[in-house]
Every structure is written in structure tokens, then in C-alpha cells.
Nucleic acid binder design. Structure first.
Lengths: 340, 340
DNA sequence: TATCACACAGAAATCGCTTTCTATTTTAGC
DNA sequence: GCTAAAATAGAAAGCGATTTCTGTGTGATA
């Protein structure tokens, strides 16, 4: 394909019979230019389809209006919804963003981040669900050069901004709600390798202990889950377990697992919520698309994303780094009911 | 936040006691440099944490390893899955991508594209479901400057690459399948403002006409749908319509509508597929997460994305523009059965 | 020993833009 | 009508890199 060369500021200047400085001034509108000169330049601009080269501009001004975003992947709607929020906030401030997927691999995550730094992004948002294996050193070095915002997880690196949801509190609220409904035999379903699951299990253990109902065999780990496959893992595991353990409620670490639980119940001929209650977490769109709609704890992914983006941009403009905790809102729908 | 300045090539040159040209040569390794000079430079580089500024490099070489991606939004899993495919292919070639959402608005779409051009992307992938209102002129001008790949839709602009799925054929296959099952009273469900819906309706009309079963009141347009809300629109519309029209099958333009249809049937106490069959289109992950799992026509969004990205990169490197049509594969699952 | 080629490294031009500095008009003030 | 100030526009430097051009010092060849 033969690609025509983009017109540059020099072409415009030539065509309009002025200097490049003048063209720059009418483009940016930050210096006075006489009306008819301005019009001549504008004419030249539109006739040449001139678009200023952002790279050159940013090189000159040593500013960058691009940020980087690193997520594990998009197969899980959770991340898609977060990115939706980031996109929205970012665009309002005239920023763009580069998206990278790290596939839950710390090595790939670091590579992605280095690539972003080389591309001169002015800040980075990182969602790294599992922080056990990442290099704190790496991030400490990084945060000295580029503003950083983490979303969720266990991040304790000083000077890094953070947007998350108090998942411990959220889990407690969910459990209290289930208890209030009369449930005592509550199965806990989690996956492997995520800070979030660890936090929630901790909350579950503590809560159940305090209420004298902790049973080790009620804690189910369905293993490594790749996005949507989590649904089937949960379903398969639960289909065998429910008849044996006879819980009256299932508390899941996320909505994907809750859908799996729901499907397992259907296959077992159990009526939800009459025979058994199911509780999800996150409030991804899927949770209100299935029948019955799933009761869940809202994480408001869109806000997670847009808050992170706004905070990052604030930091880029010199604002203090800070930690934002979003509210936990219980979304009561159709999969939870009074225990018989 | 106080951000340390990134080291530049000049800093490295100074530290190593060489010229910037030499530093550039050891970084790029395309010219001979004496062994011990090379080592001195490398030392300086790592001690200063030097990362070459990609913007400056690309400005100079007039190359860019960034592509742009424009989608309507991420709220619909369809696009998330396509982007997943793009990401995968793009990274393998050392490219990055900027993501923009156009919200189904031609104006925003053009703005997004201009922003990408300004950012000096070397190519653009566009998913624009509704091409009725876009300016052909705009795209004709554009394609002369930047390699372009469209995904899906009615694009007939010369010289533009295209990756899609023959939706007319796909619809015919679906309808034939339903007819083979004995269905004659097939409700057709579509939304507003999308090329894809128009193509499918045309296929439906033609097929039903040929088989002497076309009824105008069997064509249902549920209106403008914003991603996930489509499910509820379809459900609400169908809940009233099914008892009145008594179709034996429902053929939906996408899986979201199929889920809505499924939910409507559940609410009406209809058993799927015993009382009524439901057919989706796309094969988004949602379609296999609900119970019963939805029979659908696979679009393989991941491949749509990765093919588009590969084709774009090919075009960037000078390859001919072309049109790729992906196969239609019927995924037979649990919502379709023999008509009674 | 003189000559040539070659390996190596520095100087300088360039990419497309912004911005300071400087020069020229205008305009205002008296 | 003359000077001072303000408005306007050009020239040139600089952002951080690459690359061509040029100039060294070394070793090989005659």
C-alpha cells in the first residue's frame, strides 16, 4: 500500500505564506494572530488535512497525554468493565491510553510496564490480582519515575495510589446478610492465586469462627480459573459437593463462580432460592442476565476504572498519591432467601 | 508527586564519555562499536536506568509501532473478545495499541480516528457496526494516509482491508437448521441501527419467502440497544409477543437477544427447547454460561481480532489490502430441538 | 616505508513541533 | 507629526533520538 505523507506544519506554513511559528500559534491559540492571517492559515490547514503530530509536540513540551493500562486480560468481563470506566474518564481529560495484557504473569507484567515507560506514558494503571510473586523492588523503582495507580489487590508500596474496595468488609456484610436470613451452613467458594480470594477467605474464617459455624470442609478452592472457564469449574466441583455437604447457602468469591453454583443447583434439581441461596461478588453484568438474577456485592467496576484514571491524572498534574476505597453495596436480587 | 526525570541519550553519552551517536549505535546494534566502548556505554545505560524515548525515535525514523483501535464500547462482551484477539496478535509483532470507544456515534468515531492519526499510529482497526451515517469521503481520504482494517459491517470503500463473517450465509444456515428441525413459525428478533441486523433481516426475508412462511408480524425490532441492556429489551418485548404470536422458534440477531428470549420463556413457563427453540448468533461466552446453553452461530471474535491485527500489520509493511471472510460454524447446544 | 582500506567514533543535520527572542508594524498619546 | 507602547510575525533554538558525513587511527599490502 502506498501511503501519502501526512502534511506537516511546514507544508501549511508554505501554503499559507507564513512562518511555522505562526501556524503553531493559530493551532494552539495561545498567542495573538491577526484575523486574516489566522483565516489564511486555517484554510491551508483544512485544505491539506493537516493534523498536528502529537509525538513531535509532546517531545518538545516534555509532556505526554497518554497513559498506560495493564490488566491480566479481557476474557473476564470484570476487566472489560473497569477499562470502560478508564476510557471514559481518560477521554474527558484529552488523554489516550495504551492497553496491555499481562496474562497473570509477573514477568509479562514487568515487560508490559517497561514498554509503556519507553513509550513515554505519563502514568500507569495496573490491575494485578495476584501480588504474591511481583517484585516490590521493581515497583519501588518505577514509582519514582512514573505516577502509578493500582486497582485492587494487596499493594503496600509507599507513595503509590490505590483504588479498591474493602473486600474484607464486603465479605462480612455479605455473610451477615446470609446469617440474617437464617443461614448457618454456608459453603465458601474461592479460586487459586488471587489476593482477593485470600482476603475473602480470611473474612469468612473470622466471621464463621465468631459465630461458631466454621467447618474446614465448607471451604472450597476450585483452583486456577481462566476467566469464563471459572463457571464450569465451579459447577463441576459443586455438583458433587452440594448433595454431600447439604449447605443452605453458597457464598462465592465472584459472580462467575456464583453462576457456576446456580447451574450446579439447576442440574441437581434444586430450586434457588427456595432450597438453597447463592451469593456472588462483583456485580458484573452477567449476574443480572441469568435467571434467577444473582444477589451480589457491587464493586462498580466502571467507577473503579474511572476513579483510578481520575486519580492518576491528578497525580500526573502533581497531586498527592492517595488510597481510595469504594463503597460496598449489597445488591439484593433473586438468588437469596430465608433458610428453611 | 515529584517525578525524577528520565535519563536521555545525552546523559548516557556524558557518563560514558562518548558521543550520542555512539550510544545510539550500541543501543541499536546496527553499526560496529569497539568492545570496551560498548561495555562502558552499557554500564552507563544500566546505572542511569536509561530507556530510549520511543517518541523521539519514531519522530526521527518516521516509523511507528503503535496501531489504533476504534470500537463502539466495551460494555458488550463481543468487542472485549475481539480486542483480546487484537492484543494477542499485536504484541507478537512488537506493536502496541491505543484503544478508543466511539459509542456508536459517527462524530465521535471520526474524532477518535483523527486523534489516532495525530498520535502517529501506523494503522487503524475500526469496528463500526452501523455504517449508514458515516462519511465515505472521510474514510476515502483516510485510507490514502493510513492503512485501515474494518471488522464487520457493510464497508465497500476501495482499498480498505476487511475481516468479517458472511452474516447472510450464517443466517441462512441457521434458518435451514431450524427448518430442518421442523420449525416454520420462526420469530425474527433484531435491534435498530446496525448493518449486521439489516443483513440478517434480508436473509430472513428471503429465506422465509422462498419457503412460503414470511409473515411481517414475525419480524420484531426491539430498538436501540446499549450492550447488555439488550437482554432486558428483548425479554420485555418477547414476554408480551410470544403468547400472542405462538412461534415455535425464535431466531435472534445476537446472543444477548437470545438470552433475553430465554428469560422471557422462563417467565412464561415455557420449557426450552421442548416448547420453543431459541437460536442466537455470535457465540459470546455468555451463550454457554446460561442454562440451558444457547445454540448459536460462532463468529469467533478472538480470530476476528487477531486476523484483523495480522492483516493490518501486513498492510503496514506494504502488503496488499484484502478481504478476509471467516467461516460460519453452527454451535449446536441446548436451546434448539424438534418442533412438535 | 608509503599507500590504501577499513574499523571506529564524533559532528551535524534532521524529524515536526513549541517558544523565546528579535524585528517590524500598528496604534495610541501628546 | 513624533515617540512609546502594543500587536504581530519571523528566525532560531531545542526536545531526544537516528543517520549521514567526515575524520581519525590501525593494520594490511606493495
Amino acid at each position: 500500500m502506498d501511503v501519502k505523507k501526512q502534511a506537516t506544519i511546514v507544508d501549511v506554513a508554505k501554503k499559507a505564506g507564513v512562518s511555522v511559528a505562526t501556524v503553531s500559534r493559530v493551532v494552539n491559540g495561545n498567542y495573538p494572530v491577526k484575523q486574516d492571517t489566522k483565516e489564511r492559515v486555517k484554510e491551508a490547514i483544512s485544505s491539506l488535512n493537516y493534523v498536528p503530530n502529537v509525538q513531535a509536540r509532546e517531545l518538545n513540551t516534555r509532556k505526554s497525554s497518554t497513559i498506560g493500562v495493564v490488566v491480566p486480560g479481557l476474557h473476564n468481563m470484570f476487566f472489560a468493565e473497569v477499562i470502560d470506566g478508564i476510557e471514559d474518564a481518560v477521554r474527558q481529560d484529552g488523554f489516550s491510553f495504551l492497553l496491555n495484557c499481562a496474562k497473570n504473569d509477573p514477568m509479562q507484567e514487568m515487560n508490559a510496564i517497561n514498554a509503556l515507560v519507553a513509550r513515554n506514558v505519563s502514568g500507569i494503571i495496573v490491575i494485578s490480582p495476584n501480588t504474591k510473586n511481583i517484585s516490590e523492588r521493581f515497583y519501588e523503582e518505577l514509582v519514582a519515575r512514573v505516577p502509578l495507580v493500582f486497582i485492587n489487590g494487596y499493594h503496600r508500596i509507599k507513595g503509590v495510589s490505590y483504588v479498591g474496595n474493602d473486600e474484607k468488609l464486603g465479605s462480612q456484610i455479605a455473610l451477615e446478610y446470609l446469617f440474617g436470613l437464617g443461614h448457618k451452613d454456608i459453603l465458601f467458594v474461592r479460586g487459586a492465586n488471587s489476593d482477593s480470594y485470600d482476603i475473602k477467605e480470611e473474612a469468612y474464617r473470622q466471621f464463621m469462627e465468631e459465630h461458631g459455624s466454621l467447618r474446614e470442609d465448607y471451604i472450597l478452592n476450585i483452583g486456577e480459573g481462566n476467566g469464563v472457564e471459572t463457571v464450569d469449574s465451579a459447577m463441576n466441583a459443586l455438583q458433587g459437593l452440594i448433595p454431600r455437604l447439604k449447605p443452605t447457602a453458597i457464598c462465592c468469591c465472584n459472580d462467575l463462580m456464583a453462576v457456576g453454583a446456580l447451574n450446579a443447583c439447576k442440574r441437581l434439581g434444586l430450586s434457588v432460592p427456595k432450597d438453597i441461596s447463592i451469593m456472588g461478588y462483583d456485580n458484573i453484568s452477567l449476574s443480572r442476565l441469568v435467571e434467577p438474577k444473582i444477589t451480589t456485592m457491587d464493586q462498580n467496576m466502571f467507577q473503579l476504572g474511572s476513579n483510578a484514571a481520575k486519580l492518576l491524572i491528578e497525580n500526573i498534574h502533581g497531586g498527592q498519591s492517595k488510597r481510595i476505597m469504594l463503597d460496598n453495596v449489597l445488591i439484593e436480587r433473586e438468588t437469596t432467601g430465608i433458610s428453611m
